[in-house]
């Protein structure tokens, strides 16, 4: 049973279906070992945005205040999709990289462990 309800066959309205986001989709972004930005971030993106825009513009802008952001060696960055390591195709869209509506992409920056190594 998917819900205990007073009426039979109760169905709930899916409140966050993609079509409600005016042509965009939601993408979640998390930076491993960097918790000064207290939680992964949520942004609306065009599903056709090339993945390469993430390292090039989107991520540096989102984390602009972090002292480690300018030190990232993007060639060494490890990417995770729903927690699983993957090799993104930077020229392809986020959608074609398997990052659809409400997908979570995480990245690890080897050698960087936040403010004074505290993972902040």
């Amino acid at each position: 049973m998917s819900v205990i309800a007073a009426v039979p066959d109760y169905r709930g309205e899916m409140l966050d279906r993609q079509e409600k986001f005016h042509g965009k989709q939601l993408l979640y972004i998390g930076w491993e070992d960097h918790l000064m930005y207290c939680a992964p971030l949520c942004i609306p993106v065009d599903p056709q945005t090339p993945f390469g825009a993430l390292p090039k513009e989107i991520i540096p802008n989102l984390y602009a205040e972090h002292p480690d952001v300018g030190l990232i060696d993007w060639d060494k960055v490890q990417w995770f999709r729903s927690g699983q390591p993957f090799d993104p195709d930077f020229a392809a869209s986020v959608l074609d990289n398997g990052l659809g509506h409400k997908a979570i992409v995480r990245f690890r920056t080897p050698g960087l462990a936040g403010i004074q190594g505290s993972c902040s």
Partner: peptide, 8 residues
């Protein structure tokens, strides 16, 4: 510091 982006 203010975080300008909404969280997940």
């Amino acid at each position: 510091f203010y975080n300008p982006t909404l969280p997940m």
